[in-house]
């Protein structure tokens, strides 16, 4: 099942979580190394091991790879979670990037919240009532058209993991966000119940983000 993988990331979901989902869904054993944030900030020595001086990165056979999506794609393609041919792989990539566009809006809110920005409530409202709307619609349209229950092809891909990981963050912001989107709620449940993901979610440590 592939070479041993070590994932280095902070003790949070953030940009490490999709990588964890891919590895759990694939049944690949890996070391989920959690890096202490304060230690990372004050100790420049830690950054020299990372290929781009950032987290997350993975180590495989002594070699390192940075950037969450590059890691996700590499592992997903290795484990059959990235589409069945070149065109499907590209469709998966496009959806991962599409989710990334709106995920940046979520990060923007998170920063505002952490920095106690006085505009944080406006940012949250704009995000939940306006910015995400076309994205949720787009997911619904694609799921309606594709009919397999997943965004691309006949089974789950890492595009589903990034989309559902994002929807999970929305639900944490507003418990009722999916009540008017029953198809998306079903979709989230379907992905949460996948073998490997289900067991991971049951034992995952609680972190704020």
């Amino acid at each position: 099942m592939g070479s041993p993988v070590t994932l280095y990331y902070f003790d949070g979901r953030g940009r490490g979580e999709v990588i964890r989902w891919i590895l759990h869904a694939a049944g690949q054993n890996f070391k989920d190394e959690r890096v202490d944030h304060a230690e990372w900030v004050k100790n420049p020595q830690m950054k020299t091991k990372s290929p781009l001086g950032q987290l997350p990165y993975i180590e495989v056979n002594g070699k390192t790879l940075g950037q969450s999506h590059a890691i996700g794609r590499y592992l997903a393609r290795q484990h059959g979670l990235a589409g069945k041919d070149a065109w499907e792989e590209a469709e998966v990539d496009a959806l991962v990037d599409f989710t990334e566009d709106i995920y940046k809006g979520w990060i923007n809110w998170l920063h505002a919240k952490m920095e106690n920005d006085p505009k944080v409530d406006d940012i949250r409202k704009q995000f939940l009532t306006a910015d995400i709307v076309p994205y949720l619609q787009q997911y619904e349209t694609i799921l309606g058209r594709n009919k397999s229950g997943y965004l691309v092809g006949q089974g789950p891909t890492w595009a589903d993991f990034t989309a559902v990981g994002f929807l999970d963050e929305l639900v944490l912001m507003d418990q009722s966000i999916l009540t008017s989107h029953p198809e998306l709620q079903e979709y989230v449940d379907r992905v949460h119940n996948l073998k490997g993901i289900k067991e991971w979610l049951a034992k995952r440590q609680k972190t704020e983000f």
């Binding site: 290929p51 950037q67 794609r73 590499y74 590209a90 990539d93």
Partner: peptide
Amino acid sequence: LAQSRTIGRYLAHKYGLAGTSKWEHAQVDS
């Protein structure tokens, strides 16, 4: 096909501009 980096990656693979192994593809992506 949408999304600039997706388009770039699709074309790069098609024309041999994405590296020569899976590991290189990933390094290029990063």
